[in-house]
Design a binder for these strands. Structure first.
Lengths: 107, 107
DNA sequence: TTTGTATATCGCAATATTACGATAATAAAA
DNA sequence: TTTTATTATCGTAATATTGCGATATACAAA
């Protein structure tokens, strides 16, 4: 065991869980905050500011890219990672719709 | 390795990540949806409706309780799990504040 | 009391995640 | 061309998560 049984859940449930899961790591939260509020979008800057190894940061960036939250642009020999603001808003709406439709109780 | 280095992140980052992480599993999403929209709050009903073993559902319920999202009431020999709506709203606000303060880009 | 029902917890196996050193790939600079 | 800097990927060790059978616990019903 150890495998999440995705086949017994519907598409929306798996999608929601996947989004929450990717956001569920402090390094990825920190990356998003740095890019957004501290104007550092260069991979190497993030490595220095966050304090994880370069390979580790690169891996986290890849995961954030996998849900479309980040897009990377090549800038000479460096990579500039930016938040895809359209996707960001879309995601926020999606999570809010989950919260709003799940706001009732049976007892 | 394999340990998340929580000590290099601040309290808010770790808290946000923890909340997202707990929500990052389709079974837990399904549990919340069942309780809220399908009026099933009895543990055993969830076991039948979701299709995971009783021990597994019990474990997921425990994790949802750990972030205050569910509260369980004893009802005879059964347990009725309800969403803590105050906590639910608080959490939604907290996640929205993260989304709203991270909505800028450097490039 | 005995039996049956509902839930929690323990222990374990399978799998996933996290982190990082080493190395490859790419492009600018010398 | 050679060197240097930046990032991605591979391989691996450590740890975490998922899922479940077995069992313990608690309560109701017989």
């Amino acid at each position: 065991m150890g495998i999440t049984k995705t086949q017994i859940f519907d598409k929306r449930q798996n999608e929601l869980a996947q989004l929450f899961k990717i956001l569920g790591h402090p390094a990825r939260i920190a990356i998003l905050q740095h890019i957004s509020t501290q104007n550092s979008c260069i991979c190497n800057d993030l490595v220095e500011e966050i304090g994880l190894a370069q390979a580790t940061i690169s891996q986290h960036l890849k995961e954030l890219k996998s849900i479309g939250l980040l897009k990377g642009e090549i800038e000479g020999k460096r990579m500039c990672y930016c938040i895809d603001l359209d996707r960001w808003n879309e995601l926020q709406d999606f999570l809010n719709s989950f919260f709003n439709t799940t706001k009732h109780n049976c007892c």
